[in-house]
Simulated assay, not measured.
Amino acid sequence: MTDTADSPRSDTDGLVSVVVPTHYRNDRLRGALESVAAQEYEPIETIVVDGAEDERARPVAEEFDATYVAQERDEGPQAARSEGAERADGEYVQFLDDDDRLAPSKIRKQVPRLGPEVGVVYCGMDDEERGRIRPNPVVRGDVLGRALEMRTFPCINSTMLIDRETIERVLPLRHRHGADDTGLKIDLALQTTFDFVAEPLVFRGRTGDSLSESWRYLDGRLSVIATYDRLYRQFPDRIRERALRETHYQAGRKLLAEEGWSPRATAAFARAAWETPDDYAYHVGATLGSLAGSPGLAAVDRLFDRSGY
Results as ranks from 00 to 15, higher is better:
Y68T: 08
V69K: 00
A70N: 10
A70S: 14
Q71S: 12
R73G: 03
R73A: 08
R73S: 07
E75T: 03
E75Q: 05
E75R: 03
E75W: 01
E75V: 03
E75A: 06
G76T: 07
G76A: 12
G76Q: 05
G76W: 00
P77D: 14
P77H: 11
Q78N: 06
A79F: 04
A79M: 05
A79I: 04
A79H: 08
A80H: 02
A80K: 05
A80Y: 00
R81I: 14
R81G: 00
S82E: 06
S82D: 06
S82I: 05
E83F: 07
E83D: 12
E83W: 07
G84H: 06
G84N: 04
G84E: 03
G84A: 12
G84V: 09
A85E: 11
A85G: 10
E86I: 10
E86A: 12
E86P: 11
R87W: 11
R87M: 13
R87C: 03
R87H: 09
R87I: 07
A88T: 07
A88N: 13
A88G: 15
A88E: 08
D89E: 15
G90T: 11
G90F: 00
G90W: 00
G90D: 05
E91K: 04
Y92A: 13
V93K: 01
V93I: 15
Q94V: 02
F95S: 00
L96F: 04
L96E: 04
L96Q: 07
L96I: 08
L96M: 13
D97A: 08
D98A: 11
D98I: 01
D98K: 01
D99P: 02
D99M: 02
D99G: 01
D100L: 15
D100F: 13
R101Q: 06
R101A: 03
